[in-house]
Amino acid sequence: MPNKLNLLIVLMFCFLSLRAETVLADKNANDNGDHDNRDQALIYYHQGISAETVGLREEVFEKALETYLSIFNRMKRDGKMNGFLCYNIGNCYFNLKQIGEAIFYYKMGLKLLPGDENIIDNLKTALAKREDAVDVKSGGVKEVLLFFHYKISPAVRINILIGFSIASALLLTALIYRKRTSILYMAGILCACVCCLFISLCVEYYLPRHIGVTVHSAKVRKDAGEGFAMITPKPLGEGSGIRVLSFNNGWYKVKLNDGRKGFVRQNHLRLVL
């Protein structure tokens, strides 16, 4: 009788997992409506690359951008994001010489797909085109030690967490019936990994680190108002990365690399994710 109960529990778990995957697959299937638009946008983009006049080039790039942005906004409304879509939008902006916007979308794409080489390459090219720009200091040792927090996207982290938790659950189940030291150690290591990932995701969710990108040349002022003095000798060039602390009444409170705090107008800065 107890063996049957165990079997029932495992079967129930399998059913719930399959059900969850089915729901996700259904959601993905609904995206197929955008298929035509995406292809059309790619056609426009390629037309822009091979255009013979500046006017035509800008027109088709604008069309491609418009199409990609409409898809992006629709997906965003549905609570979805796609790193490749951000990358495509970044490419369109880059070819339209709007470096700030391009960097913003590349960074967003990189946040969703941290290891993507195409995005990294194009971002490097775009960063090289900036003038008077600054970037947020990297975390150094902290970033190396907590690589899973900085280098892995939250979506991937969630998947790893699910995998690890299933593995550790299996080991713990084995431990209930066969008390072996080796199983105990392995289960302990996996549970520690699960805890780290869980804490990392909680930090990401509840204490997010907001990074903004200046889409235009932005003046950093002492307080929220056009009348206040600038705290940097020059305005930050477009495409600058800057840490954002809060937002109030059309002004972002930002923190510079040297620790000083200032305010940037809302329309000059866009938050990555």
């Binding site: 529990i9 495992v10 778990f13 719930l16 997992s17 969850a20 959601k27 993905n28 995206d31 197929n32 955008d34 298929h35 995406r38 292809d39 946008a41 790619l42 983009y45 997906m75 609570g79 979805k80 994001m81 796609n82 790193g83 490749f84 879509l85 990358y87 495509n88 490419n91 369109c92 880059f94 070819n95 969703l112 797909l113 195409n118 390459d121 194009n122 090219t125 996207s153 939250p154 979506a155 982290r157 969630i158 967490l161 699910i162 690890f164 938790s165 299933i166 550790s168 659950a169 299996l170 713990l172 189940t173 699960v194 869980f198 995701l201 990401e204 969710y205």
Partner: peptide, 30 residues
């Protein structure tokens, strides 16, 4: 610069669905 991408990869959802953490807790419940 690298070319735009197209195809099924654009259908993927890369956003973090934090509610899926519940699936990670389910094995422990089991």
């Amino acid at each position: 610069i690298s070319d735009n991408v197209s195809g099924p990869i654009l259908y993927e959802d890369h956003s973090a669905h934090y509610h899926r953490i519940i699936y990670a807790l389910m094995p422990f419940v089991v």
